[in-house]
Amino acid sequence: MNKAIILTNGLLTTNDAKTAHGLIRGTERYDIVGVIDPPTAGRDAGEVLDGKVRNIPIFDSLQNAVTTLQQIDYLIIGVATTGGVLPKDMLDIIQSAIRYRISIVNGLHEYLNEKPEIVALANENNVQLIDVRKPKSRKDLHFWTGEIYEVTAPIIAVLGMDCALGKRTTARMVRQACEAEGINARMIYTGQTGWLQGGEYGFVVDSTLNDFVSGEVEHAIVSCWKETNADVILIEGQSSLRNPSGPCGLEFLISGNAKNVILVHSPKRSYFDNEPHWGKIPSVESEVEIIEKFGSEVIALALNTEECAESEAFEYQKYYVEKLQIPVLLPLEEGVGELMPTLRRLADFTGHTINR
């Protein structure tokens, strides 16, 4: 794989760096060899993220990274800011990387290919500018057809109560756990980080014309099912059903025909995006009720235990098990193995044979 370094430039320990967090946890598209983040320089990126050493060093500057590492093919902008705006303090670093003949991968809405000076510099140094979130052309978009109803494999949407809760990470962990048990699980990516992690089937929701979101969901699922004979199909959720800054999820339940849901919740987060003026996050019970009204079933709750002591995490797990009577997962603490019997039952019920 091509070797890549992630640029967070002071944001690594914030929710804005969720793209970096996903890549640090794993990607099949790149070999992550370092992170540029001055405040945490000298540490291991995995240890900073969740206490697990992953042998990914953090550097205080691009120059030090280039001097230390033998090869860097790509610089990945590892942040997802509000509105997808490129932080101004990253522009000089990007230009320096181009002069080092390092290609740039950008997952923001502010496209590098629309900056003439950056394009000229990239051409001069013969490097790529990859804007992951650049919308597809009209000819490459799909309209919804109803073909989704032919899919016999269970379709599971991983939805959240808010943004940046770990929906993609949970979906990826479930896929990996299935693979370990001989279940052919596939994940539909719906954001730029899913693609950066090596996603084969999917699209970027917030770069897609609204008329075609339903069709792109359907096309990704149907293509995946036909081409891989998947036992289980997971859809990475975006935002949440009731986040006022960008409600999302009903497309996956209705147009994607996801009759099963893994819901992700952070017990200690009170407000959408931690912004009190955006409103309080409703109760898990009310979210489950809404999902059920649309004909889908919540088969598990996954807890993001940010701001929780270890004992609190397990207390919340016990509380929600008693409240909801469904598996309650602590993905980072315990993994997602508890969900495997449920997934096997779902696949057996639909008549989709699992390799045992």
Rank of each mutant, 00 (worst) to 15 (best):
N126S: 15
N126R: 11
N126Q: 14
N126K: 11
V127H: 04
V127W: 04
V127N: 07
V127C: 08
Q128P: 01
Q128V: 06
Q128N: 12
Q128C: 02
L129M: 09
L129N: 04
L129T: 05
I130W: 01
I130M: 04
I130Y: 07
I130L: 12
I130R: 00
D131C: 02
D131W: 01
D131Y: 02
D131K: 00
V132I: 15
V132P: 02
V132Q: 06
V132T: 06
V132D: 07
V132H: 03
V132E: 02
R133H: 02
K134C: 06
P135V: 04
P135C: 09
P135E: 08
K136M: 12
K136E: 14
S137Q: 11
S137R: 10
S137G: 06
S137W: 00
S137I: 08
R138H: 03
R138C: 00
R138F: 11
R138L: 15
R138P: 01
R138Y: 10
R138M: 13
R138I: 12
R138D: 11
R138V: 05
K139C: 00
K139R: 10
K139D: 12
D140W: 00
D140F: 00
D140H: 01
D140M: 02
D140A: 14
D140T: 01
D140Y: 00
L141A: 11
H142Y: 15
H142A: 11
H142S: 12
H142Q: 10
F143K: 10
F143S: 12
F143E: 10
F143C: 01
F143P: 00
W144Y: 14
W144C: 04
W144P: 02
W144L: 13
T145K: 13
T145A: 02
G146H: 13
G146C: 10
G146I: 06
G146K: 12
G146L: 11
G146M: 11
E147N: 15
E147T: 09
E147R: 14
E147C: 03
E147W: 02
E147P: 04
I148W: 12
I148Y: 10
I148V: 13
I148G: 00
Y149D: 09
Y149H: 15
E150W: 01
E150H: 13
E150Y: 03
E150I: 01
E150V: 02
V151E: 08
T152N: 13
T152Q: 15
T152E: 15
T152F: 03
A153W: 03
A153Q: 08
A153P: 05
A153S: 15
A153I: 05
A153R: 03
P154C: 12
P154I: 10
P154Y: 11
P154W: 13
I155K: 15
I155W: 01
I155N: 07
I155G: 07
I155T: 12
I155P: 04
I156F: 03
I156T: 04
I156D: 00
I156K: 13
I156G: 09
A157F: 04
A157G: 14
V158H: 10
L159H: 08
L159I: 11
G160D: 01
G160L: 08
G160K: 13
M161Y: 05
M161L: 14
M161V: 06
M161W: 04
D162A: 08
D162V: 10
D162P: 12
D162H: 08
D162C: 07
D162F: 08
C163K: 07
C163R: 14
C163H: 07
C163Y: 08
C163V: 14
